[in-house]
Amino acid sequence: MTQVVERLASTASTQGIKVKGVYGSSSSLARQISRGAPADIFISANTQWMSYLEEQIEGVKPSITIAGNQLVLVSGKEGVTLDKLDELSNWNQVLDGQRLAIGETNTVPVGIYAKQALQNLDVWQSLSKHTAPMKNTRAVLAMVERQQVPAGIVYLTDANQSQQVHIVSDIPTELYEPIQYPALLLSDKSNAKQVYKALYSKDMSQYLLELGFTPLTH
């Protein structure tokens, strides 16, 4: 979503509107906004954290889902394969006694989804003892890029943006809750409304598709 916000800022600047992006995990941003941190638009990678914020702030209109995503297993090394995700021996072969990088499983969306997938594959109980939990998906990706871990679970869009990792396996979407990105307008400012509207324009839907997102504007 960093690229999406940067695209919004670039487009808005041509119309004389300055957009400042503040980046972080959905959980930390939602908490900060609920405690009074200034924000005009909030984009979450998780519907639960969006619901949390909507409950905390009175008078806001319902959020709009602008895109979807999926999980993939990535590695910084060439030739890594994992054919059957539900066989623990395959995971152990890939990890080779090292750790699997994932997002924190209690608060960070990419970690929450990863845990759901691994639980449904019946490998979580064993793999949970060999994970490297990170504070956001960028941190997970960085661990894999630097080869500090042999593999990690990130969003497809993360993998598409990196030149230093390759996709070992797609993780079937039926193994975890749908990954959706709701956006919420928090301001009555005309400029904020204009930028918010651009989020679900045809041009943005096309850009989301190019990044690897699934446009879900409705």
Rank of each mutant, 00 (worst) to 15 (best):
A37E: 14
Q48W: 10
A67R: 06
I112L: 08
L100D: 01
Q119S: 09
V144S: 06
D96L: 12
W124V: 05
G76K: 01
V110D: 06
Q98F: 13
A142L: 14
L95Q: 01
N106S: 14
A101S: 11
R99S: 11
Q161Y: 01
L53Y: 00
L85W: 05
Q56V: 06
N90K: 12
G79C: 06
A132G: 03
Q93L: 14
L118H: 02
I57E: 05
E54N: 08
D86R: 11
V154F: 05
R138D: 14
V108N: 12
A39I: 06
G152F: 02
E87N: 14
N90Y: 09
G103W: 05
L156D: 00
T157F: 09
G103T: 05
I57L: 14
D96E: 09
H166F: 11
I43T: 07
G59H: 06
G59R: 04
N92C: 07
N90C: 06
A45V: 07
Y155R: 09
T105M: 10
E55G: 15
V165M: 08
K77M: 14
S75T: 08
Q148M: 12
I33S: 07
I57K: 03
Q93A: 15
D86V: 08
I102V: 15
A37H: 04
K129F: 11
L95R: 04
G103L: 06
V60D: 02
E104F: 11
S44M: 04
K135M: 12
N106V: 09
Y52K: 01
R35L: 13
L73Q: 02
E78Q: 15
M134P: 00
L121E: 01
N120V: 05
L71M: 08
T105I: 12
A114G: 09
D122V: 01
L100P: 01
I41Q: 07
L95A: 04
R146L: 13
T81G: 03
A114S: 15
V60S: 07
Q48N: 14
N69Y: 02
G79M: 03
A67Q: 05
Q70P: 00
S51G: 15
E54V: 02
D158R: 06
L82I: 12
G152D: 02
G68Y: 01
T131W: 09
D158G: 00
L121F: 04
T105P: 00
Q163E: 15
E104M: 11
A132V: 10
D158P: 00
S126N: 13
V110I: 15
E104D: 15
N69D: 12
M50S: 13
N160D: 03
G103D: 10
L73K: 01
G111Y: 04
Q148F: 10
Y155V: 04
N106E: 14
S75E: 13
G111W: 06
E55N: 13
V108I: 15
R138F: 11
M134Q: 15
V168M: 07
T47L: 13
V149E: 02
P38D: 08
L82P: 00
L121N: 03
P109E: 13
A132D: 13
A39K: 01
I102C: 02
P38Y: 04
F42W: 03
